[in-house]
Design a protein around this nucleic acid. Structure first.
Length: 579
DNA sequence: TGGAGTGGGC
C-alpha cells in the first residue's frame, strides 16, 4: 500500500504529460485501478493536463466506476470549461447500469462549469435537478454555488431569493453576495452586505476583506478605503500578503501611488504577486523607469516573474515611451525566463511600437504572431493609427475589429475620428451612421471627483451641480489666466466635429474633466492633490489645461482615464505628453 | 469512510 500512496502523491504533484504516462504505466504494471481509487485520480490528472481523449479512454477501460469516478470525470471537464461534456457525462452517469444520482459534489462541479460558461439555460436546468434531489436544504456549498451562478449571469433577484430563503448561510454566502452585487455594478449594496456580515457577528476572513477592497474600488472613495485599511489593521490582517496586495492595488487604482508604495514596503518578504501588483501600479501611473527599477530589484531578490509581471512591465515601457527597453524585455521574457509571449504581451508590443510611430513594424509583428491576433492587439494598432493619422492602416485594423467585436461602438468612433482628423468628413459620417444602424450608442464621457465623503459626477456642459455658477466662474477665470499668463490657445483640433471654430472652442471648454478640475480647485484644500477619474480617455486640450492649472494654481492633479493615470505638477505630466 | 468540492491577491 506504501507503493500506492507514493504513486498518489506523484499523481497529485504531476505537471507533465510524459510523467503522467509513466505513472499510468506503473499503475497498470503494479496495482489495479481500484487500489486507492488510483484510476479516478489518473482520469483527473489527464484532464488537468488537457488530454481528455486519454482520460476518456482510461475511464471507459476502468473495470468499476462508482459515483466518485463519475465525479472525477465531471469535475475534470468542469475545470477545463467543457460544459457540454459535463452534461453528457452527467446524462451517461444517470443512464448507466448503476443509475447513479448526482450528489452535492456533482452539482458543485457542474455549477462551476455553468459559471465559467456564463450559461443561463444549463444553469437553470441544474437548479431544477438540485431542487429535485433535495440537497438544497442541507448543502450550503451548493446553495452558495447557485447564488454565485445567478449573480454572475446577472440575475441578482434569484441570487437574493436563494440567499434569503436559505437556512444554511455561512461566511461564503455573505462574501458571495458582496461580490455579485459589485459585479453587477452595485458596489454600495456590496458594501451593505459586508457591513451586515460584520454586524451579525461573522468572523471575517481573507476572502471577505478581498471582496470589500474590490467594493472600495467600485465606490471610489479614498476615505472608505482608509476606513477598511483601519479595519484590516485592527483585525490583524495586515500581515496577510494577499490582503496587503489587494490594499496596495486599491490605493494605486484610487490614484494614491505613495500609499501603495507604503503598503508594499510594509509587506514582509513580498511574493511574486505583491511585487507584480506594485509594478502594475508604477505602470498605470506612467512611471516607466520606476517600474523597470522595481522589476530588476524583484529579480535581484530571487522572485520569479510570471506572464502577468511581463504584461505590466511591457505596458510600463509602452506608456513611458521606452521602446528599446520594451523590446529588450520582450526578447528576454522567453529567452531568459522561459515565458512564451501571450496575446497580452503582443498587445503591449504593438502598443509600444505604434505609440512611437513605428506603425509598419507594429503591423509586421501582428502578421508574424504565432497565434491569431485578438481585439486587444488590433485595438492597439487602431489607437496608434489615430495618433499618427494613418487612415489606410487604421481602416484595416478597424475592419478586423468590426469582425471580432461587432457590438463595440468604440471601434466605430475611433475609425470615424481617424477620418475626421484627416478631413474625410463623409467617411466619418458614414462610419457613425453604420454604428447607429447597428443600434450601438456612444458611451457618455463623465468625470468623478471625491469631496466631503461623496463622489461628485460631471458630464459635458454640466449645470446640474448646486455649485455650478461658482464652477463656471472658476472655469472662465482659469481660461483667462491661461490666455494671459501662458498665451494658451484652445486646442480645437481635438474637436472632431465639422463645426465652426468658436463652436469647437465652446464644446471643448465644457468637457467633464474641466468642470471637475474647476470644482476641485474650489473645494479641495491647497495642500491636497486633486484626484479625478474619467470613464473615457482624457482629451488633448483637457490634458494641456491640467498641465497649465498645475503651474498657474500651483496644484498637484491626478487624472485617471480609461487607460492610465496622469500626474500633473509644475506644468508637466508624468506621461510626458505621451499617451 | 474515502478519492470528487461553493466565495477569494498581480
Amino acid at each position: 500500500m506504501a507503493n500506492v500512496s507514493s504513486l498518489i502523491d506523484s499523481i497529485t504533484s504531476c505537471v507533465s504529460i510524459f510523467k503522467c504516462r509513466l505513472l499510468h504505466c506503473k499503475v497498470v504494471k503494479n496495482v489495479s485501478y481500484r487500489h486507492g481509487f488510483i484510476g479516478d485520480q489518473l482520469v483527473g490528472l489527464y484532464l488537468r493536463l488537457g488530454h481528455e481523449v486519454c482520460a476518456e479512454k482510461l475511464f471507459d477501460e476502468m473495470p468499476e466506476r462508482d459515483l466518485v469516478s463519475w465525479n472525477s470525470l465531471i469535475s475534470g471537464y468542469s475545470k477545463r470549461g467543457y460544459l457540454g461534456k459535463c452534461f453528457e457525462a452527467l446524462s451517461r452517469m444517470m443512464r448507466s447500469e448503476m443509475c447513479f444520482r448526482p450528489n452535492e459534489v456533482t452539482f458543485l462541479s457542474i455549477i462551476s462549469a455553468c459559471v465559467y460558461g456564463r450559461s443561463r439555460e444549463e444553469g437553470q436546468c441544474v437548479h431544477g435537478l438540485v431542487m429535485k434531489s433535495g440537497v438544497l436544504d442541507e448543502e450550503v456549498k451548493v446553495v452558495n454555488a447557485l447564488i454565485n451562478w445567478y449573480g454572475k449571469t446577472g440575475d441578482l433577484t434569484s441570487s437574493c431569493k436563494l440567499f434569503e430563503d436559505s437556512s444554511v448561510k455561512n461566511l461564503v454566502s455573505w462574501n458571495t453576495m458582496i461580490l455579485i452585487h459589485l459585479l453587477n455594478g452595485l458596489a454600495e449594496e456590496g458594501l451593505a452586505y459586508f457591513s451586515m456580515s460584520r454586524r451579525i457577528g461573522n468572523t471575517l476572513d481573507q476572502a471577505a476583506f478581498l471582496a470589500v477592497l474590490r467594493v472600495c474600488e467600485g465606490i471610489g472613495v479614498v476615505k472608505l478605503a482608509q476606513g477598511i485599511h483601519g479595519l484590516i489593521l485592527l483585525s490583524g490582517f495586515n500581515a496577510n500578503k494577499c490582503i496587503a496586495t489587494g490594499l496596495l492595488d486599491l490605493y494605486a487604482k484610487l490614484g494614491r501611488l505613495e500609499d501603495s508604495s507604503t503598503v508594499f514596503l510594509e509587506i514582509k518578504c513580498p511574493d511574486s504577486l505583491a511585487w507584480t501588483a506594485m509594478l502594475a501600479a508604477y505602470a498605470t501611473h506612467g512611471y516607466g523607469k520606476d517600474a523597470i527599477k522595481h522589476f530588476e530589484l524583484m529579480v535581484h531578490y530571487g522572485i520569479s516573474p510570471d506572464h502577468v509581471t511581463f504584461t505590466h512591465l511591457l505596458s510600463a515601457c509602452s506608456h513611458a515611451g521606452l521602446v528599446e527597453e520594451g523590446k529588450h524585455y520582450f526578447e528576454t521574457m522567453s529567452k531568459r525566463y522561459g515565458i512564451e509571449p501571450r496575446l497580452d504581451h503582443y498587445s503591449c508590443m504593438v502598443d509600444l511600437m505604434g505609440r512611437s510611430g513605428f506603425l509598419q513594424e507594429a503591423y509586421r509583428l501582428i502578421k508574424e504572431m504565432p497565434m491569431e491576433a485578438s481585439s486587444g492587439v488590433w485595438g492597439a494598432l487602431l489607437g496608434a493609427c489615430r495618433v499618427y493619422g494613418n487612415t489606410q492602416l487604421g481602416v484595416k485594423a478597424a475592419e478586423r475589429l468590426f469582425e471580432l467585436e461587432p457590438c463595440d461602438g468604440r471601434n466605430y468612433i475611433m475609425l470615424s475620428n481617424i477620418y475626421s482628423a484627416s478631413g474625410q468628413w463623409k467617411d466619418a459620417s458614414r462610419t457613425r451612421n453604420l454604428m447607429k444602424q447597428k443600434g450601438l450608442v456612444r458611451g457618455k464621457g463623465c468625470s468623478y471627483i471625491e469631496h466631503g465623503n461623496k463622489i461628485h459626477k460631471f458630464v459635458v456642459g454640466d449645470w446640474s451641480h448646486p455649485e455650478s455658477e461658482k464652477i463656471q466662474k472658476k472655469l472662465k477665470e482659469i481660461r483667462k489666466k491661461m490666455k494671459n499668463e501662458l498665451g494658451y490657445k484652445s486646442r480645437t483640433e481635438f474637436v472632431l466635429h465639422d463645426v465652426d471654430e468658436d463652436v469647437k472652442e465652446e464644446m471643448i471648454n465644457q468637457h467633464s474633466e474641466k468642470i471637475a478640475m474647476a470644482f476641485g480647485l474650489l473645494m479641495i484644500s491647497q495642500i491636497e492633490t486633486i484626484i479625478i477619474r474619467k470613464n473615457l480617455r482624457i482629451c488633448g486640450d483637457c490634458h494641456e489645461t491640467a498641465k497649465a492649472i498645475s503651474l498657474i494654481e500651483k496644484r498637484r492633479l491626478v487624472i485617471r482615464d480609461s487607460k492610465r493615470f496622469h500626474h500633473f505638477s509644475q506644468g508637466s505630466c508624468s506621461c510626458r505628453d505621451y499617451w
